[in-house]
Nucleic acid binder design. Structure first.
Length: 772
DNA sequence: AAAAAACGCTTTTTT
DNA sequence: AGCGTTTTTT
């Protein structure tokens, strides 16, 4: 049985899977069988009797990854085994950091000082809560942009800091700290937690409650972490705490000298942690530094856990040689890597195809053509992916795909549970369940409109403030239309009867709330009908009718989602569903079975693979993104992103870019991405003429001149010898592209986007621009 | 109070 | 360009 688990693994993979019960770091390159190693490790621990499912805690970054791990595990631990030894996957805890923390907080909500039915704020909810608070505090939102405050709060929480712990040396920061503190107080009053709070609260729960901490430390002897390079400081602290590592060396120096003195022979693991941490990651695929991921955790891990076992998985099973070589060549431009080079036993395969389009529309058209051609040649649509840096780029692609009749699916972007109509519907449910949720109340008190205007709402807020109660309590004391609203929610609540507060056991799934509750889909249906949401959209006419129709379909889909949820989950309570909606906003997708082309951002593509991949918009300023150049190490992160993109492809890879692109409502002209230039020439096959070898004056997009032979150095003293989109060279600033021209003649100016120096206005008279 | 129009702001990536 | 917010109109 065990041999069969290990068969087919290469020596390194096998070594990783069968490591002794110690902490380890597995440096797993793209396509090196990372997930396989992780799941096989778990299966091996269990089937060799070293651990029972209860001893396993596995952390992933996406719900999708968690699900896949579970699926693979059930396949690895055959049913017969499961029956004979009573093994199933139930005892394991597998999920995202947020999911696992949520689970712990629900189980110990009392100890964590939370209502059992606490709600989770997504980023948008959080932002509106902050805006509301700032208004109440009379904070100038010009001086303190709510987005920045949100970033400040979440950023600090992800560093493990509460407002009281943030160091503020200037008045500006001090004010933000005040808002931070007030915000937390407001969340506490309203019984809601944001994403970062889930983690921080769980961390604090474990660190303050010795009994609980020891319970979980004793239980989870094996902690396995996927995508370890993406963990932030707080997540790492959480892992250390759970694994029984002294969480803060500064305050809590390491374990007392061992009995027997320095040379005592006690196993290392017992010294530094109570559990074995098995971390799998790839520093080259760290692409979430922008939201606090700390690659440095890999180094810390080696130290804190005294890791002796570092195993590199460098054999790639996914891509052809040329693709890997390109990836390797690119990533070598990054400094401070742990060092790793992928290789493959596969043949070189074909060269990477490079295409330069005059416009983004043309780029899209080309891609669609190639997709169709490949499809005719037998490549399934679902085996191909079009990747882009930012979501905004999908529009043009979608347009081209629609007109060509190619079926496609966009991943990410506007998520199902983030649509307005869905959030409205969920807000009713949230309010019914937790009347303290002011966010939810404000969202729906006048939607659909029921004659409660800004004035009345202000009065409610006043009254709530004076009596220091929630808005709901204030509303309950009001009369007129507000009273009618309160009555409406009350009546919906009593019909659905989610009232009984069912106790939740430690670490156990919660069965649906006793028989007194209406089934979830019926609750949903009832609320949609009686809240007036359905009627509201049905009554929509004119220009908005189409949109309303779509919203109605989405609301209908919400009922389907609830039905599906009830079927798939043991805990089918309303709370569980609302949690699902907040934590897995992107999971719900209809029509999974169709063969459709994949459209997604590069970020979203991590962990996936395709026969053919298109990396689009390879333009300086877009990919690498302009903003990345402002931040330290930003360009390196962009390069890792490109590395991720390249390594998604199995057999064929297209790299495309456009000279001009409609972005934010105006046409942008950019140079080709520097990443493209970092790839070795011999790996590239230019479908359009290669840039470096081309004479710009003969290229299709170059200015058409009447006398191309004359004037080798055109001094544009005369009117517009320049046009937007033209490539130029400047003595000091180097290469650039003309963006705009102001005036003609001697005092004319041109705006140029320089590759190195950014965008500048130059006087034509002095700037000796040369065409390129 | 609701709808329409004007304004202006952003717009990288996401659990 | 699209979206959310604010102002104006009905």
């Amino acid at each position: 049985m065990i041999p069969s688990l290990l068969s087919g693994l290469n020596p390194e993979q096998r070594a990783a899977v069968t490591l002794p019960e110690q902490s380890a770091l597995i440096l797993a390159g793209a396509g090196s069988g990372k997930t396989r190693v992780l799941t096989t490790r778990i299966a091996w621990l269990i089937s060799s009797g070293q651990a029972s499912p209860q001893n396993i805690l596995a952390v992933t970054f996406t719900n999708k990854a968690a699900k896949e791990m579970l699926t693979r595990l059930s396949a690895m631990l055959p049913p017969s085994t499961m029956l004979r030894t009573g093994i199933n996957t139930r005892g394991m805890w597998i999920g995202t950091f947020h999911g696992l923390c949520n689970r712990m907080l629900r189980a110990h909500h009392r100890e964590a000082n939370l209502p059992q039915t606490f709600q989770i704020l997504d980023s948008a909810d959080q932002l509106s809560a902050i805006k509301r608070l700032m208004k109440a505090m009379n904070v100038d939102d010009e001086k303190y942009p709510p987005r920045e405050v949100q970033f400040f709060i979440s950023g600090n929480k992800e560093e493990g800091l509460r407002a009281s712990e943030v160091e503020a040396f200037d008045p500006y920061t001090r004010r933000k700290v005040e808002i931070f503190a007030e915000y937390d107080a407001q969340c506490q009053r309203e019984g809601v937690v944001d994403f970062a709070e889930l983690l921080l609260r769980c961390y604090e729960l474990l660190s303050r409650n010795q009994q609980l901490r020891e319970h979980y430390q004793a239980r989870f002897k094996h902690i396995l972490v996927d995508e370890f390079q993406d963990t932030n400081k707080l997540q790492y602290q959480w892992l250390k705490l759970l694994a029984g590592v002294a969480e803060n060396r500064k305050r809590l120096p390491l374990p007392n000298p061992l009995p027997g003195g320095e040379g005592a022979t006690v196993s290392l693991r017992d010294d530094f942690s109570t559990s074995a941490l098995f971390a799998v990651g790839d520093d080259d695929q760290s692409i979430y530094a922008f939201r606090g991921a700390n690659v440095g955790n890999m180094q810390e891990l080696l130290r804190d856990f005294h890791v002796q076992n570092v195993i590199k998985l460098e054999q790639n099973y996914r891509s052809h040689g040329n693709i890997l070589n390109a990836a390797n060549a690119l990533i070598q431009h990054n400094r401070s890597r742990l060092g790793k080079n992928l290789w493959t036993a596969e043949h070189q395969g074909e060269a990477l195809r490079v295409y330069e389009a005059p416009t983004d529309t043309e780029e899209a058209r080309f891609i669609v053509e190639e997709v169709r051609q490949l499809n005719r040649e037998g490549v399934r649509l679902s085996g191909m992916a079009v990747l882009y840096r930012s979501n905004a780029q999908s529009r043009v692609l979608e347009h081209a795909l629609v007109s060509a009749g190619v079926s496609y699916r966009v991943y990410g972007g506007l998520r199902f549970f983030e649509r307005q109509e869905i959030k409205h519907a969920l807000a009713y449910l949230r309010l019914m369940q937790n009347t303290d949720d002011d966010n939810a109340l404000l969202r729906i008190i006048n939607f659909p409109t029921r004659g409660i205007g800004a004035r009345s709402i202000e009065q409610l807020q006043e009254s709530a403030k004076i009596n220091s109660t929630t808005l709901w309590d204030a509303a309950a004391r009001a009369g007129g239309k507000v009273a009618a609203f309160v009555g409406l929610v009350e009546s919906m609540r009593s019909t659905c009867r989610e009232l009984p507060l069912h106790p939740q056991g430690v670490g156990r799934g919660v069965p649906g709330a006793s028989g007194s509750t209406l089934p979830l889909p019926e609750i949903m249906d009832h609320v949609l009908q009686h809240s007036g949401l359905i009627a509201h959209y049905q009554n929509e006419t004119g220009a908005k009718q189409r949109e309303a129709q779509e919203r109605l379909e989405n609301l209908n889909e919400l009922i389907n989602a609830a039905t599906l949820f009830v079927h798939e989950n043991e805990d089918d309570s309303l709370t569980a569903f609302l949690t699902h909606a907040a934590l897995e906003a992107g999971e719900h997708q209809a029509g999974d079975s169709d063969d459709a082309l994949h459209l997604m951002t590069v970020h979203a593509a991590k962990g996936l693979e395709f026969d053919a991949v298109f990396i689009t918009g390879l333009e300086e300023g877009l990919f690498p993104h302009q903003n990345s150049k402002m931040t330290d190490g930003g360009l390196d992160e962009e390069r890792r992103l490109m590395y991720v993109a390249i390594t998604r492809a199995r057999r064929r890879l297209y790299l495309t870019f456009a000279q001009s692109r409609m972005l934010h409502g105006q046409v942008d002209y950019s140079l080709v991405s520097s990443f493209l230039r970092e790839l070795p020439d011999e790996l590239l096959h230019w479908i359009t003429p290669r840039i470096a070898a081309r004479n710009p004056f003969t290229a299709s997009f170059a200015p058409q001149r009447d006398a191309p032979v004359a004037a080798p150095v055109p001094r544009p003293a005369s009117s517009s010898g320049w046009h937007a989109g033209q490539r130029v060279f400047h003595q000091k600033f180097g290469e650039g592209v003309v963006l705009d021209i102001k005036g003609g003649g001697a005092d004319g100016q041109v705006q140029v986007n320089f590759k190195r120096a950014g965008t500048k206005w130059l006087a034509l008279e002095y700037a000796k621009l040369e065409p390129l």
